[in-house]
Amino acid sequence: MKTRTVPDPGSPTEPVAPSRPPARLRLGRVVALPVDGRALLVSAGLLVLLAVASAATLTLGRLGIALADLPSAVTGGAEGMDKLIVNRLRGPRLVTGIGAGAAFAVAGALFQSVTRNPLGSPDVIGLSGGAGAGAALVALLAPGFPVSVGALVGAVGAMGVVYAATGTGFRDPGRLVVAGIGVAALAAAVTQYVVYAVERDQATVLTSYLNGSLATRSWTDVSTIWTLLLVAVPLTLLLSRGLTIGEMGDELSTALGTDPQRTRTAAVVLSTALAAGAVTVAGPIAFIALTAPQIARRLAPAPGPRIMVSAVTGAVLLVLADLAAQHMPLTDDLPVGIYTMGIGGIYLGYLLIREWKKGTL
């Protein structure tokens, strides 16, 4: 009796073949975007959950806006304390969290597709470590200078080192991961030295940023992350077809008329830009880039990176984690990154066990 192995929808190494070609949304004669009914339904459900979490963020707690006043407050009719909450205290924090969560998730989806590995994420290749080291060095060498600028420079610098260290740029996923692990280890050493060396008060502020935090965000942070998303996400959608074919192997990809190496390089560059932007406005928040694409693949299984589903999933995860950070008892507004570390660590353990049982580790 023959048995048939059912591919795992959560693994980029085993894409799911759709039963029929997806419908396409045509924009003129040139652009035709595939439309997946299940992905649309999942995205709609996640958007409803995001709306509920967003409303809870603005209404819960001692300074929360009354639920009856929320519609007018978010449409520009807020006055007094409600206006302060929307414009200064919670509004920028919420919108930054939505954008950063989406950016981290899309970066992770691209990287997992490129490496064909469900354990892949920008964290693995040293981007977050480089951002932390850059922020730490700015705190040590230029007190008073925005650590977010140092984080951006550190993230880009780390990717430059990884690019040079592989000898093949971003074309070889295996070398990319190995070089990234080395860069991350060196960056962690620099960060720990700086935290030890700077003064106690400054070290406290720096540690909060290095854990990832959405506290004291501003509308400048909102404009930074959302401008990046508006530029980068359409470019990632243009890469979707090449990445989907690339998950089936370079030979098939080449035979079907795509350039797998060029597609991988473009995807890694976009992933790096998105993750670096998110780190700049929110700090190196851990595990959103790893877990959100995996959850998206399970909610809407299909070949290729699930860009839009991953983006909404990442936004929901980060907003929920920040909601917990603000209102969980006995934690005194801990950085949101501590909560994502806990959730992501559990999920990473699950992934490791699953991959070990499959014999891929």
Rank of each mutant, 00 (worst) to 15 (best):
T258Y: 13
T254E: 13
A276V: 06
L270I: 12
R297S: 05
A273T: 10
T265F: 11
P260D: 08
S310G: 12
P305T: 09
R306D: 12
D250L: 13
L252H: 11
R264D: 12
T265R: 07
V312T: 13
E251R: 14
T254K: 12
A286F: 10
T263H: 03
I288A: 04
A266Q: 07
A302D: 03
A286T: 09
A266C: 11
L256P: 07
T258M: 13
L299Q: 06
A267L: 09
A282T: 01
I307D: 02
P260F: 05
L252I: 15
G257T: 04
R262I: 12
A302I: 03
A276D: 01
A266R: 05
A278H: 07
T272A: 14
S310I: 11
A300P: 11
V268A: 08
L290D: 08
G249F: 04
V269W: 09
I245Y: 04
M248S: 14
I295H: 07
P293M: 08
D250M: 13
F287I: 03
I285E: 00
D259K: 09
L270A: 03
L252W: 09
F287W: 12
I245D: 00
S271Y: 05
T280F: 06
L274D: 07
I307L: 13
V268N: 02
L270V: 07
L252N: 09
T265M: 12
T272Q: 10
A311V: 11
P260Y: 05
A300W: 11
P293Q: 07
V312P: 03
A302N: 02
S271F: 01
T265Q: 06
R264I: 11
T272N: 10
S310Y: 06
T291Y: 02
I285V: 15
